[in-house]
Design a protein around this nucleic acid. Structure first.
Lengths: 187, 187, 187, 187
DNA sequence: TATGAATGAGCCTTCATTCAT
DNA sequence: AATGAATGAAGGCTCATTCAT
């Protein structure tokens, strides 16, 4: 007895997001997603071509909100605070979605398309970081060559992830450390 | 028809190492390893209890040589060069085993034992880094508080992996950057 | 291509029953059951957690009807006929499911749960036999000590199985013999 | 480095006997037998064509000694004691080799040859029982028709096995019960 | 559109048997 | 004759995907 489900796409998203975040791609199966959503397996396939594409869609969506927050900061925060605010927000967001963030540093084992989406996502984040870094650099009146800046951007990014993984109860110190590492490179 | 195969353990190791490095645990199956080794599936099980233990053994072995090299540096290199040499070697080693290095930053999806072995391994590497960092700090006459040092150690580690991933054709610049980031934190 | 199969549980039951009866647990594999049922292997696992549980379910089911028939006799047959009727029915039932009855006299090689289910089943049968034996004893005004009765119950049970195995075309004589052996013990 | 092994056939027999008795055919593998014997798996195949034939040979051998003991009784024991002595010995022997005795009442799941050997064996035992029963009958001056006697012989046999299985700590009572059941049929 | 039973390829693992040494 | 490494068929089970209802 088919039922019409309201806001089904969102429900699927929520269920899948939670599962993928907690367990990782390989340890989630479609039945789990269906169960958690409260729908039948087949219904999943009305909304997503296959498991991979479901995963990808979750991945993309899950970051959109974050991207918006970051943009908000870029638009409205004052120069001197942009970088630290951006790092703080990114830290918090990543903290909340550990499992799914891992994918952003792993490079292998993702086949072509999966890779593409993830890279696109990563780039979006890196672009924001770069922008904020530029502002910060200007604000501090510092000079960095192109090569160094490129690396610095990535460094900030992975630092956020790594500090999250390694010292997860110490947000304050972690962020200070990251800022410190950036600032000292800008002297 | 059974035949005695020469250096089979090494052959298995090589095949498994290459496959696990390239594809990651979940995407390698025992038949692939057997085929690449040029033996029957069953033979694999004469040498390794199961897939997990094969993987673990490959993982451990693959790092033993590296650990030895690092120890060599710690023992014989002069203070001023210890850190940079250690980073260089680690960088080179990780560069050669990309896939399998990933496991060291991913935290989840590894069940108990797997996790244990990986953490043991990671710790061994971190201990060497810490030691080298201590020397370097002494040599530069710098001061760092405990909290910062802890983070700095992890930072060096993930920087090596990340730089490898992101700018793999520019070893020289990458290492300079890493050293730079460390040194500037020690001022 | 999935299709909805009618009465699939019963079909599985029938196929599995026939196979397990004829060949015994170890010599039946899931593919055989699937093939005989006319379904895919995976489908089997939609209805039964694993091979053992399929087997157990078949075992239990196959005896439920018998238990019902026996109870019917206990409830409605007149005292003087209870035992002979019960033995006759049990004989007929066992005759129809030779293979699966064997499990009831084999004791070993069944791991924990399997054992438990089989013993439960066996006990149910033995309880009915005992009851009938009690009636019969009363009816014949005979005396037996506890120890003897215990053994007599088991004896009736295994006699039914053994006579079935050994002289399967002579139901009449077999039952007479069993009754005879019981009666002579009750004099 | 091949070694010449003394009394190897007997060693294999002992190891295999113990294993098969304890665990049953399906749960013993050739490596276990080799290990327990203290030889290589391949060596097993110099003495026995395959697992089945090893099993069969063990089965046959294991009963030869028993058969001899039984014959001794038939030859030397006085008429009045023949049956009870024979039952006692058989009871003791079966008690010591539970696992392997089970095969004698199971009829199915043994493919052709296996079946043949087991039946041959069983017949040898039944013949002795019949002989002893005849003596006993003469001694007690009893009459039984052919059909009954045939069944009585089997009955004695399965009673021994069943009493063993069901009340294994009460040898004395069990044997009394068996004798009792026989005697009461001979009145 | 929603359902979920059905599908079957594919995975890990075992073990009787062979045969180069 | 003894060895035991090598073999590979076979088994139990999972799960992404399909499609009749």
């Amino acid at each position: 007895m088919p039922k019409i489900i309201d806001g089904i796409e969102e429900k699927i998203y929520n269920a899948a997001y939670e599962l993928f975040s907690q367990k990782g791609y390989e340890f989630v199966n479609m039945k789990m997603v269906a169960n958690k959503t409260g729908i039948a397996v087949g219904t999943l396939y009305n909304y997503h071509k296959n498991k991979k594409s479901l995963y990808l869609s979750v991945l993309e969506n899950s970051w959109q909100e974050t991207l918006n927050k970051l943009d908000e900061i870029m638009d409205n925060e004052k120069k001197s605070k942009k970088l630290v605010r951006l790092i703080t927000v990114l830290y918090t967001e990543i903290s909340a979605r550990k499992g799914i963030a891992q994918e952003l540093i792993k490079s292998s084992e993702l086949k072509e398309i999966k890779k593409k989406v993830i890279n696109k996502l990563k780039n979006k984040l890196l672009i924001r970081i770069e922008e904020a870094l530029d502002c910060h650099k200007d604000y501090r009146n510092a000079e960095v060559d192109q090569e160094t800046k490129k690396r610095l951007v990535k460094l900030i990014f992975i630092e956020i992830i790594a500090m999250n993984n390694e010292f997860h109860d110490d947000k304050q110190k972690n962020i200070e450390f990251i800022m410190n590492s950036v600032n000292s490179m800008l002297s």
